Computed example of a mutant assay.
Amino acid sequence: MPLNFVLDPPVDLQLRDGVLTLWTDVSNAGGAVGFVPPVTPDDIRPEWVRHLTAMSEGRIRLLAGYDEDGTLAATSFIAFNTHRLMTHWVWLYTVMVHPRHQGKGYGRDLLAATESAVRGFDGIEAIRLTCRGGTGVEHFYASCGYKEVGRVPDGIRVADGDDRDDIIMLLPLK
């Protein structure tokens, strides 16, 4: 059963709880979404509040994917670039699919839905994201059309003695 994607879903307690649960579960399953396990929803909450603030200011838009039960199962946060010379591309952040849905093609569906949504934004010519080296996720993004355009060796410190490359990827929309 495919996910139902909604751009800019209503911000309510159900969305808050869904994002906090999803982000916690993805992080604790080893997903590279800004945290290192173990984490709790209380650890995630300050970052969610920062995302909410940016959403309320129109700097970030949320694409939410809901499963057949109406449970939040996937997200991507689309951030507009505020630098006047770079407003022709957006950042993609916090790309997540719940671990119980891994292997169903939902990640590919999420990226396709994100691309479709972004194509509807005026003046946007590309989507840019970064990912943590050592996870292999760059191969997944490449299979979805993203190209590696840069790499910062040891740019991400997961833990003392565990530095990973910060991989920059781009999807041109032209």
Rank of each mutant, 00 (worst) to 15 (best):
G30F: 04
A32P: 15
A32N: 07
V33S: 06
G34L: 04
G34K: 06
F35T: 12
P37E: 07
P37T: 05
P38R: 13
V39W: 11
V39R: 12
T40E: 12
T40A: 13
D43W: 04
I44H: 07
R45V: 11
P46M: 10
E47S: 09
E47N: 12
W48E: 10
V49N: 14
V49T: 09
R50E: 08
H51I: 09
T53K: 14
T53L: 07
A54H: 01
M55K: 15
M55N: 10
S56D: 15
E57M: 08
E57D: 02
I60F: 07
L62E: 08
A64C: 02
D67E: 04
E68F: 15
E68P: 13
D69S: 11
L72S: 05
A73R: 05
A74Y: 11
T75R: 13
T75M: 13
F77M: 10
I78R: 00
I78V: 04
A79R: 04
F80M: 07
F80H: 03
N81K: 04
M86G: 08
T87P: 15
H88D: 06
H88G: 07
H88M: 08
V90C: 01
L92R: 00
Y93M: 00
Y93R: 00
Y93E: 01
T94W: 09
T94G: 14
V95K: 04
V95T: 04
M96H: 03
M96Q: 08
V97G: 03
H98V: 09
H98A: 12
H98K: 09
R100T: 10
H101W: 09
Q102I: 07
Q102H: 12
G103F: 03
Y106L: 09
R108K: 04
R108S: 03
L110W: 05
L110H: 13
L111G: 13
L111E: 14
A112M: 05
A112G: 02
A113E: 00
A113R: 01
E115D: 14
S116A: 10
A117I: 01
V118W: 00
R119S: 03
G120H: 02
G120E: 05
F121D: 05
F121T: 05
F121I: 09
G123W: 03
I124T: 02
E125I: 10
A126M: 15
A126N: 10
I127N: 01
I127R: 00
R128W: 13
G133H: 15
G133Q: 14
G134W: 14
G136T: 05
V137E: 11
E138T: 12
E138C: 06
H139V: 05
A142F: 05
S143C: 11
Y146A: 08
Y146L: 09
K147Q: 06
V149E: 06
G150E: 01
G150F: 01
D154N: 04
D154L: 07
G155A: 03
R157S: 07
R157T: 12
R157A: 06
R157L: 08
